[in-house]
Simulated scan of single mutants.
Amino acid sequence: MMFATPLYRNSLRGTDPFLVLTTCVYLACKIEEWPHHIKLVVQEVKHILQDFGGFQYDSSKVAEFEFYLLEELEFYLIVWHPYRTLSHLANELGMRESGLQYAWFIVNDSYRCDVCLLHPPHMIALAAIYLTVVLNHADFAPGGPGDKRDMRAWFADLNVEVEEVVEIAQEILGVYEVWSDWREERCVTVWKELKSKPEVMG
């Protein structure tokens, strides 16, 4: 989320995603009380990004960009995740481990699109359960609440907008459609093409 927020609010061509990414890793290590020296972080990034044209920034630039990143995040560094709500609801419905694991994977995949920036975590958890049920992977315990109830009625009884749950589910399904056509080897080419085009000022 730390990486997605500045890119969501600013033009991709106006911001170097590799600088944003490096700064996010450095800042996340500090937040999680697992600090790494800034020079070590920059050194690792330079090694990893050799195939992408390298990383031309030094540690002073990353340290400077850290302040811009904090400002972009409005100094709000607490992140709420859907996992706690997902576990609670799955337990309440009597969903067995395999069903919970399937929904958990869907939540993981949701971080590859912008739903985490647009919707509250409990709605993403509900969308993961919705997709798990619709795709017949819920695996409710026999005789459990989820097994006995009509899940359509369960969703209708919730004090949430079901349309929003469906919208989030559609966004996540859109990620899988993109993945079906994704080719890793095209990434470098697309990145270089994007960086070479002049930014259009609107």
Rank of each mutant, 00 (worst) to 15 (best):
F3Y: 13
L7S: 06
Y8E: 00
R9K: 07
R9L: 09
S11L: 10
L12M: 13
Y26F: 14
Y26M: 02
E32P: 05
H37Q: 04
K39V: 02
V45H: 00
H47N: 06
Q50V: 14
D51R: 14
Y57Q: 05
Y57N: 05
D58Y: 02
F67S: 12
L70Q: 04
L70S: 04
E72Q: 07
E72S: 03
I78Q: 15
H81A: 07
N91M: 07
E92R: 10
G94H: 09
S98R: 13
Y102M: 15
I106Y: 03
D114F: 04
L118F: 00
H119I: 00
M123D: 09
A127G: 06
A128T: 02
V133A: 11
V133W: 15
N136K: 15
H137L: 10
F140Q: 06
A141T: 05
P142V: 12
P142C: 14
G146E: 08
D147L: 06
K148C: 11
A153Y: 14
F155G: 03
L158H: 09
Q170C: 09
V178G: 11
W182Y: 15
R183Y: 15
R183K: 15
E184T: 03
E184V: 09
C187F: 14
V188L: 14
T189V: 10
K195D: 00
K195T: 00
